[in-house]
C-alpha cells in the first residue's frame, strides 16, 4: 500500500491536482473570513440592539436575544440545510458558495455576538457613568470608551472561534460546495488512496488555521503590552 501511495504522490502534486486543492483551500478560507467577518459586524449590531434601553425597544431586544439563543443551539449542518432550501426557494440561481457563506454568517452572528457582549460587559460600569456624566451619547460611549477597552477581551476568543470555525466549514461539503473536505472526496473518487488524500487535506487545514492562531496570539500580546508602553 505504501508503495502505491508513493507512486501517487507525484501525480497528486501535478499542476491540475495542486490547483484544484489550492482553490478548494481558498474557498474554505474565503467562506470563513467572509462569514465570520460579516458575522462580527452583524453580531455587533445584535449586541447594540439587545442593549438598547427603553420600553419601545423591547420587541427588538426579544428578537435579538431569541436569535442568539436559538442559533447557538442548533447544529451548523441543520442551519446549512435550512439556508440551502430557503434560498433555493426564493432564488434558484444562488451559488452554493453564497448559500454556504450565508449559513456560516448566520451561525457566526450568534456566537460572535456573545463574544462581543462578554467584551463590552467586561468594561466597568463606572467608565460608562463617567462618560454619561460628561454628556457622551450611547454611541459615543461605545465607540470611544467601551469598544477600545473591550478589544483585549474580545480578540482572543474571536480568533479561537474563527480557527475552530475553519474546521466546521468542512460540513459545507455536505451541500456540495467544493471546499477542502469536498476536494478530498473528489480526489479520493478519482482513485487516490484515502490516506494520502486526507493526509494532504489535514496538512492544508493546518496551514490555514496555524497562522490565524499565531496572529491571534500576536494581537493578544500587543493588547497586553500596549497597556504598559
Amino acid at each position: 500500500m505504501l508503495e502505491r501511495m508513493a507512486n501517487e504522490i507525484p501525480r497528486l502534486f501535478e499542476y491540475y491536482s495542486a490547483i484544484f486543492l489550492l482553490k478548494a483551500m481558498g474557498t474554505t478560507l474565503l467562506m470563513t473570513l467572509v462569514g465570520v467577518g460579516l458575522g462580527f459586524l452583524l453580531g455587533f449590531v445584535i449586541v447594540y440592539l439587545r442593549q438598547t434601553p427603553g420600553l419601545f425597544w423591547v420587541p427588538v431586544r426579544i428578537v435579538a436575544i431569541t436569535y442568539v439563543e436559538i442559533f447557538r443551539r442548533i447544529p451548523f449542518l441543520v442551519i446549512l440545510y435550512l439556508v440551502l432550501f430557503f434560498i433555493q426557494a426564493i432564488s434558484p440561481n444562488a451559488s452554493l458558495f453564497t448559500i454556504a457563506t450565508i449559513g456560516i454568517c448566520m451561525m457566526a452572528i450568534a456566537y460572535t455576538s456573545e463574544i462581543i457582549r462578554a467584551g463590552f460587559e467586561s468594561v466597568p460600569r463606572q467608565q460608562i457613568e463617567a462618560a454619561s456624566a460628561m454628556n457622551f451619547s450611547r454611541w459615543k460611549t461605545l465607540i470611544n470608551v467601551i469598544a477600545p477597552q473591550s478589544w483585549p477581551v474580545i480578540v482572543p476568543p474571536a480568533f479561537a472561534y474563527m480557527v475552530s470555525f475553519i474546521k466546521d466549514t468542512a460540513l459545507v461539503s455536505q451541500i456540495g460546495v467544493v471546499e477542502l473536505t469536498f476536494a478530498g472526496k473528489v480526489m479520493n473518487n478519482r482513485g487516490y488512496s484515502a490516506l494520502l488524500v486526507y493526509g494532504t487535506i489535514l496538512i492544508l487545514y493546518f496551514l490555514l488555521s496555524y497562522p490565524l492562531t499565531r496572529l491571534g496570539g500576536y494581537l493578544e500580546k500587543r493588547f497586553a503590552s500596549s497597556k504598559d508602553n
Binding site: Q126, Q127, E129, A130, A131, N144, V145, P148, Q149
Partner: peptide
C-alpha cells in the same frame, strides 16, 4: 469628580 477617578483607561 468620582471617588474612584474613573479616568478612561484607553
Amino acid at each position: 469628580v468620582f471617588q474612584q477617578y474613573n479616568l478612561f483607561q484607553n
